[in-house]
Design a protein around this nucleic acid. Structure first.
Lengths: 211, 211, 211, 211
DNA sequence: GATGAATGAGCGTTCATTCAT
DNA sequence: AATGAATGAACGCTCATTCAT
């Protein structure tokens, strides 16, 4: 006898999180209502509060989940036996691919958390800094080994690198830059070349004249 | 006979704008009330609406006022007869000094406008992009002249440069980096060295290995 | 065994509408606050907005609900096989009885809607005119049949008839006229006699002398 | 020698009153601001409060000024030696011509005062009733003399007559009826014919059948 | 008389959160 | 777990009125 058709079990909590990504990305965390998330998820209003203590907790959950994946990736990359430039390329590639595969989630994380200095950014400051640290570790090893300049602190270097990538993502989010597969791939190369290799042609390197 | 001391005439509109800078910087645009601004300015609630149509208009005014100053500065710097690296140093110096002289205003502009992709950032997108263009022009000239690499598009270079500086300011705003005179001066040098000269030691430049 | 006494289920939406009638009638639509309605209904402030989009929608709902009842009544009366005067008596009786049974509701509808030319009156103009049309139809049939004068357009006649009744209700609302059962009954007769039979004694009818 | 050109003296108070008529008629008393009136009059905001104690006093002034003219006219008409029908025709003609000559003022008086039972209507109730009384006096004399039916109280008759005229004006205000010279003239005749002569053809008069 | 900046109470609306079922 | 009605604090904005000049 054939088994009765079973309704596939749906994880309502997951449904809510996914709906939140969609809604937060479209309308922004502050400009949407909890009911928008519930409607998008197709669940009752109150169920959101069964799974989450507050609207903020939804965003926190989304951020922490995803950010951990990135931190793990950076650590894993750092552990590889590769030149620093290749490691940084791998980091850039990971972040850019994250955006490529789930632009809404990355948009939410960047716009609503990492770039929101007054609210969630402050709350997750330590977590955000861990990413800096991971990148910084890569640079630091390269400095120790001699392939990277010793006069640029690794923390500072990490900041420039991360800043460039975040700006890149922001440009895609803002639709300032086109979002095509070619652009994504090219951006990985360019950001590493720009930050590691510098903008100047070989042989022109010179100290800046102080004002 | 000396004239009696007269109460200096106060520009209430300016008072409100200055108070808004203070309040928006402390509590964030969305987390403060119009009455907070009025109280801080020491004026009646309604006067805010005598001078501004809405709370948003206050922020727009602050942004547009200050951003124009920066755009003018970039244009003026571009017109100077200097090497590209020195021009970029001047741009970095201008922005960093802007932050040094009025950290609250810069915080508000960056946190509430340029980094707020879903709200004011979108509104002022074109204005924000003008800054990119100014920097891009500097890079483009250097490419044409041969001092900057031709394989990094000037728009991309401008984005990396601006991204690094914005991240720098954000780090100060977040209090991740110390805010001392020495740090400010040193950051000007470092950001230019990192972006123009690159992170790698001379002679180690190499293309990244694609994943 | 007798079932335990259950609290009768209350329709909060109805509760709010009824409270609005009371409050609008006492204080006027513009002079009362939404909280007055909520307080009168004994519900929380926000619940008003759970059921209605705005304060105005409450009034619109009250008007449309009741006005439809009147339009239906006029249509039903028109369909009866009666002399025109009796039909008009029935219409007058229906409106006056409406006031008698729910003076607050009729007050709100007349004062805040049908007599409010600049606000709700304009909004519901078409609906209001439908009542004229219904009365006009009754008159028109009487003219065709010969019992009513052909030199007074039916629309004009309807306007006089409705105007007289509205003035009558207004007088009760203003407390210019006493509100007793006898008065209500007498008014039904008088308004029909005045409008259909005219003020003049039989045999004195004469054309007016133009100024 | 020619006299020096003198600036014609402008009565600012009158200017404000006239501006108020225009503004109240367009936007309604409650939907306009005092500044709208000042702007329309071309005077400073504060000057309105130099001449009037409040926004309401402006409306009261407009009403009382004009209403007195009407009361005087009714009294004057009543004193003439004319048949009742001709007197009522004169009253209707006066009111309709008032609207014809200054539709904005009449609109304001009717919409914002006489039809506003909850606000100004209540305040000026006694004044409004004086108009009824004037009309009522005309009817009463006709009843005493035998030309008008004695079974319709003169107060009731006055109410019907005034109600019909107010409805007529309201129809013009609402733009339900066309506003042409011919319509105005015809309406004077029709309203008197309808109310004095009745809607029914001669010989069909009959008592209504009670429900 | 004339000006318009300054005041501040008041109100409609929103929406995160709670809770009875 | 699931529902959605119910709650009420919070806030942006309006505008009549006052007052210093």
């Amino acid at each position: 006898m054939a088994t009765a058709p079973k309704a596939e079990p749906v994880d309502k909590r997951r449904l809510i999180l996914d709906a939140a990504v969609w809604v937060f990305a479209r309308r922004g965390f502050h400009h949407c209502r909890v009911s928008d998330v519930a409607d998008e998820a197709g669940v009752a209003y109150g169920l959101v509060y069964h799974y989450f203590d507050s609207k903020e907790e939804i965003l926190n959950t989304l951020f922490l989940e995803r950010w951990q994946v990135m931190l793990d990736a950076i650590d894993e990359i750092d552990a590889r036996d590769l030149p620093a430039r290749d490691k940084l390329y791998a980091v850039a590639a990971f972040i850019i691919d994250s955006y490529r595969h789930n632009p809404d989630l990355m948009k939410v994380i960047i716009v609503e958390v990492t770039r929101a200095a007054n609210s969630f950014g402050r709350l997750h400051l330590d977590r955000i800094r861990e990413a800096y640290t991971g990148i910084s570790d890569i640079v630091e090893a390269a400095r120790a080994e001699g392939s990277f300049k010793s006069d640029i602190p690794s923390e500072f270097a990490a900041m420039c690198f991360y800043g460039a990538i975040e700006q890149l993502l922001t440009s895609w989010i803002f639709e300032v830059l086109p979002r095509t597969e070619e652009e994504f791939e090219r951006a990985k190369e360019l950001v590493v070349e720009a930050i590691c290799g510098g903008l100047e042609s070989a042989g022109t390197s010179q100290p800046a004249t102080s004002a």
